[in-house]
């Protein structure tokens, strides 16, 4: 891991784990505090293509394509009394692994790749949905704290196997 110290590695890993914990606990306001104001948060649509095509991801269309304000809007919505999709809330579990860190474009940034397995279940239905993805993040140090400045979620499914994305990756 060229240019990344053990200390930075530990800090970044701790940040990602804490951030996942906030999402799983439904602490969305606190999660917003983990983001930079210029965050770009994208989950592009994927389409099955032949091996020769460079990428299966469709740049022009996202399942989510967010900035800070729209993420704040999604959180504010959950705080109303009428967000039926998440009331009763989904029970989610973010499983993170394969964390890889590289130096970023700026001195105060690192690029982080991680694998995500997201478990979701609702109500008394014993069935669950699993979403698997690779996340490409950019973390930036702001006033001594790591913040999420960019997240690109590369899903493994083209047809999403859950009834909506009222949850976050």
């Amino acid at each position: 891991m060229v240019g990344i110290s053990e200390e930075v590695y530990r800090e970044v890993r701790d940040f990602l784990l804490r951030e996942a914990e906030l999402l799983d606990n439904g602490s969305y306001r606190d999660w917003l505090d983990c983001l930079t104001e210029d965050i770009r948060y994208q989950v592009p649509v994927r389409v099955t293509r032949d091996r020769g095509v460079e990428s299966e991801f469709v740049n022009e269309m996202g399942h989510l394509d967010e900035d800070y304000v729209s993420l704040e809007m999604r959180v504010m919505r959950l705080e109303t009394e009428y967000a039926w999709a998440e009331d009763p809330p989904s029970r989610t579990r973010h499983f993170l692994s394969n964390i890889r860190i590289e130096p970023g474009d700026r001195d105060d940034e690192v690029r982080v790749k991680s694998n995500l397995l997201l478990y979701r279940t609702r109500g008394d239905d014993p069935h669950y949905d699993l979403l698997s993805a690779e996340r490409h993040d950019v973390l930036r140090r702001v006033n001594g704290q790591w913040k999420l400045a960019r997240r690109l979620v590369l899903l493994d499914q083209t047809t999403i196997g859950t009834h909506n994305l009222s949850i976050l990756f």
């Binding site: 649509v45 269309m61 083209t158 999403i160 859950t162 009834h163 909506n164």
Partner: peptide, 11 residues
């Protein structure tokens, strides 16, 4: 624009 969103819902 781009490709359609596709998802499965139990309805």
């Amino acid at each position: 624009v781009g490709a359609p969103h596709r998802w499965v819902m139990d309805a």
